[in-house]
Amino acid sequence: MTRARGLIGWILPAALVLGWEALSRLGVIPANILPAPTAVAAALWRVAVSGELARNMGVSAWRAGIGFLIGGAIGFAFGLANGLSRFSEEFTDTTLQMVRNVPHLALIPLVILWFGIGEQAKLFLVALGVFFPIYINTLHGIRSVDPQLVEMGRTYGMNGFELFGQVILPGALPSIFVGLRFGLGIMWLTLIVAETISASSGIGYMAMQAREFMMTDVVVLSILIYALLGKLADTVARALERRTLAWNPAFEGV
């Protein structure tokens, strides 16, 4: 039953891919506009064998991961500090909210002036993009911890660390996960834009180079790889969420 329902969801995409293939073969869709699925598969095989794929994917994943770690760690730290200390919040929150109103991708020309097209530029943009969702959701999570539970912890003699570890952090975790998943989405988006505009390696660079040589199949392949990586990151985050929030009835049996 579940198996059948799982399969039902795949019927439509499979039909779409088959239809696309058929239309390409019949010449209804010209290959320079949209190559056939089999052509994309052939391109995958080609770049995989030449080692180009692994190299570019590695570079992109590295940029995404490091940028995410930097931005996420700083955002998390500010979220904790401002959630726990009134002084810290009054001191920094207004500034952060102002900076948040600048779309980080609008900084690309400035960032290129500062860092050139080197790695720093991409890491900076990814970190900046990831910072805000993590910051805002961590702060929100800590503030929405049930004060009655905090009082209970106090009455039962928990010290500051225990209170944080047993009450405040677990209480803030659902919100922190929301921030994490938003952050992952922004991470890929930022990287795609940054690599497409200026890079000498990475998936975005692979796509732009293919465009110069009119290799539409590789361009489509790059787009699909981005989609796949984004999906992968989201799946990992969801699995982590499910494990960590097993106590929450909202995740029961999901």
Partner: peptide, 10 residues
């Protein structure tokens, strides 16, 4: 309020 509470608790 919640914040003040968490602060004093900490």
């Amino acid at each position: 309020d919640a914040l003040a509470m968490i602060e004093t608790a900490a």
